[in-house]
Nucleic acid binder design. Sequence first.
DNA 1: TTACTTAGTGCCGAGAACGAACTAAAGGGG
DNA 2: CCCCTTTAGTTCGTTCTCGGCACTAAGTAA
Lengths: 397, 397
Amino acid sequence: MRKGDTQEIRRLNRRAILGYLRKSPLTRADLSRLTGLAKSAVSRLVEELLQEGLVAEGASTSPPLGRPGTLLHLRPRARFALGAELGVEGTVLLALDWRGEVLWAKEWRHPREAGPKERLERLLAEVWPHVPGPLGLGFTLPGVVVEDRLLLAPNLGWRGLDLKPLLQEFPLPVAAENDAKASALSEVFFHGEANLAYLVLSTGLGVGVVAEGRLLRGAGGAAGEVGHWLGQGEKTCSCGRRGCLETELGLGNLLAHHQALGGQAEDLEALLQQAKEGEAKALEAVRHLGEALGRFLANLAVAYDPALVVVGGKAAEFFPYLEGPLRQSLRAHAFLEAHQDLPVRPSVYGHLAPAVGGASLFLARFFELGGLWAERPRRNGGRYEEVAFGDRRGLGA
Amino acid sequence: MRKGDTQEIRRLNRRAILGYLRKSPLTRADLSRLTGLAKSAVSRLVEELLQEGLVAEGASTSPPLGRPGTLLHLRPRARFALGAELGVEGTVLLALDWRGEVLWAKEWRHPREAGPKERLERLLAEVWPHVPGPLGLGFTLPGVVVEDRLLLAPNLGWRGLDLKPLLQEFPLPVAAENDAKASALSEVFFHGEANLAYLVLSTGLGVGVVAEGRLLRGAGGAAGEVGHWLGQGEKTCSCGRRGCLETELGLGNLLAHHQALGGQAEDLEALLQQAKEGEAKALEAVRHLGEALGRFLANLAVAYDPALVVVGGKAAEFFPYLEGPLRQSLRAHAFLEAHQDLPVRPSVYGHLAPAVGGASLFLARFFELGGLWAERPRRNGGRYEEVAFGDRRGLGA
DNA sequence: TTACTTAGTGCCGAGAACGAACTAAAGGGG
DNA sequence: CCCCTTTAGTTCGTTCTCGGCACTAAGTAA
């Protein structure tokens, strides 16, 4: 239950101003109208933001009548964050500014058997040259993450891992998050849709859900692990159970199905190439997957009722071939009319998406705090606390 | 993006004080420590609340050392709300105070073919004698409700209904909500668990999810319509599609299964009676349902990751017989270890639960506003706006 | 040149919290 | 019996932030 004082009011109003400026340049008068704040209050806060170098003055407006205003805009690269993905294949590290622009990115592969300690130490070595500067480092894992603990990551073969000791080695604030959840957050942060589901479909299947602008984490960080919905199948999943949806929809099964049709593709890259060339069996296998995905999306739609579904992971590359059958199947299976034309689009960041999501953890937090970063530094040793808005605790807390 | 001024500070701090007092009586000094507010600020706000009759002074504490404090508590029945359920069978109307105590309740049945206009007019007639007084009337429907519009209620046979014109007839603030969502809210409001799923299982199946104290509604109010997840079945659902989970788990199918086993029960009441008497076929049918429910809950757990599942609807009455097989099945099918012992319990309000949920819409809102009810009366004609905390819009809005 | 319109600043008052000093009310020890 | 310690609660002056009004600034139109 958050208490209020004058500093809290200042934070709320700075947040509002930065939030509007993030979308487009505005004059002080515009901000006063939009926020409902008095012009004098806006002027004062803007003056503060100018001093801090977060905001800059730009061109003048030329209205049909009256004195022209001075447009204010956020200064590009005034603040940025690092993001990393610890994926099954390798690691991606990048820097991202508040506009979502990737300032630089670096990737490396790793031995199959590399453990968490080894991989995080390599990451630490890569991060060192870039501090100080970034707001923080957010990194993602393909598994269930809660409060810097990794409960289970079947596709990495890791489980029950307390990351805190490793994270304390880093010379800047660090946060860990599930890959789908972080990706979902980056979508809402950069594209503004407050209700969406971000599907990560590669070997595994997971979804990050944002509802009313807030990430749905659940009590133990496991919300959205829909790859482990039990279906009618009988195949054994990497989690050890049988019949998980992931065994049907995961791209491993796409390859297997293609081979069962008599297709010749040794990996997904080859299969994708064949689809691009119009090879019939490849297209048929993809069509089959798209149909199953459409049915799955119909279930996703009634579970979370998103206004948008973003497809990420390796499946995003197959999207042009998946899209048709997927939409047709979704239309046929949707519960509500509104879901028949549920917008579905591929992720824009490609394979960088999870790392972008990681960085957006800190960018989102920065704007949530109204840019008051230096003034409240490193509470809890700099651990990131919450990205979404408002109290995490609710009515009964 | 909410702005802040001094009134907002006051609201936040009144909300904090009322929130703590709602749980137990406390002295001013306790409140100061808990909220972090200065003693003087607490005294001033408490004085205000005493004047308004929301809070009263009670006994003195007798600490081992120092001056005794005066305990403060919320005055029972100082505020209350009306709640109603427009169910398939009939209508329930009740009054509920902030402690969750049902002040009075009234129920009536209605002709099968009664339409929304007819039923709401009857409700209006029953409500008239009780106004003014209540904070508002929240009523629930077994269907998809968004912003006072009922999109679809298969089990009522209603669809695409704009309730606003009907609701404007009421002489107090009115809000409509899905039955499972409202029930879920009442659970979090009265029992304090911020992450839970409230299952309504009768003829239909739906779930209300609360995550971090906020109701999960989705973009179109359809989140949690899990009764319409498509499974492997082939039975035709009331929604017109085939294979909805509801056709498997709905209690209609329980009765059918019992009959298929050779059981003799003409309705659920009779079946329940037989289960109570230990009749083998009844117990077997219920066991079968419990097993399927356990599997379903494993899926629900990975979808929303609640810390608690509450079972409501007619199924709550079967809970003693469902519980064993359900837990066994859940344990066998759970994805995470944490979900193996996911607490599952029946709703405490019995068949009044949805109406209690309706009333809790207004009670929750009242506390969210820090008890500033009369001061912000009837914006939008008294329409209830949001129950959950903070901005509904998020990062990108 | 003047009237009008809109942008932005300066100043003061209001509301709220904070903090320090103070009073109130208990128990315990000499 | 008095005084000391401890905790509860109040009073009062200070600080912070916004709101509102008056005012200046900078355009267009007549």
